[in-house]
């Protein structure tokens, strides 16, 4: 698996899109530092971009990579290699290149603006880890969908739909339910529903870390009570890990039974 991963990475590290993606984060972060020298403010502004964009780009990249390397995958399948090694190697290659792009694009300007001597090191680390977790989750979901669908357009649409669901539709439904069942105690429901969506979960983790949960009023207090504890952080980490593990398990299973 590590061989396939190594070559997928070295292939992607020369793709211009990876550089465009990295440059985008570099430019964005630098521009934000221009507007404000306050690291905490920059982290909050970046959060909104990273939480929405990194899963989308990771999903699109994974889908494109899967389709683009289809013939080459066939060549590998005829070699003495395990099927699971090929697909997991390709997945981790894509996921890692997305993570490295994110880390480089955000990290370099932050280091330049004195991250290490500021009090924001851990807040920045939370943002980066959330972005990396989302990249891992959504590239795995996209890889799984791409493996399962023969029709490229259908697979592509489904992947976009999954992203749209978690980034936009989920929150809409969530708010709707909160308004409809306003008369009932909804603390635990709100908590559960947020934990189940990896995007919301990441957002909450960052906001809690930045200690601005007061901005979130009532529900902020509930979340603070939950995520402020070690058990809460444990549950959150477990949920993110499960979000990564389940699609990877799906990729493995499909790789073993699919015809090429």
């Amino acid at each position: 698996m590590f061989k396939i991963l190594k070559y997928t990475l070295s292939d992607l590290m020369r793709s211009k899109w990876v550089y465009i993606y990295t440059t985008f984060y570099l430019v964005l972060t630098t521009a934000l530092f221009w507007l404000s020298n306050d690291l905490a403010k920059v982290i909050i502004s970046l959060m909104n971009v990273v939480l929405v964009l990194s899963p989308l780009i990771a999903a699109l990249f994974a889908t494109l990579y899967h389709h683009q390397s289809r013939e080459f995958t066939e060549l590998l399948l005829a070699q003495p290699v395990r099927r699971t090694a090929i697909f997991l190697g390709q997945y981790f290659g894509v996921a890692m290149s997305m993570s490295v792009s994110l880390a480089a694009g955000l990290g370099v300007p932050f280091l330049f603006y004195g991250l290490l001597v500021s009090a924001q090191v851990w807040n920045f680390a939370t943002l980066l880890l959330a972005g990396i977790a989302l990249s891992l989750i959504f590239s795995a979901l996209a890889f799984y969908v791409a493996l399962r669908t023969e029709n490229k357009i259908k697979g592509f649409s489904l992947t976009i739909l999954i992203w749209l669901f978690f980034a936009v539709i989920y929150d809409g439904l969530f708010l709707l339910l909160l308004v409809l069942f306003n008369d009932y105690p909804l603390d635990n429901f709100a908590l559960g529903a947020s934990v189940l969506n990896p995007l919301n979960l990441s957002r909450m983790l960052i906001l809690m870390k930045l200690d601005i949960s007061a901005l979130m009023s009532y529900s902020g207090a509930v979340f603070q009570r939950f995520l402020g504890t070690a058990a809460g952080i444990g549950v959150a980490a477990f949920c993110l890990a499960a979000w990564i593990a389940i699609p990877i398990f799906g990729i493995r299973k499909t790789a073993l039974t699919k015809d090429f």
């Binding site: 060549l75 590998l76 003495p80």
Partner: peptide, 27 residues
Amino acid sequence: ISYLPQIARFPENLTVSELLHMIRDVR
């Protein structure tokens, strides 16, 4: 087994010698 597939498409960004190296490394 050595197999020649019908369609010859490879990762675009690798060079020929890198591809050969890769397959050698795999096999």
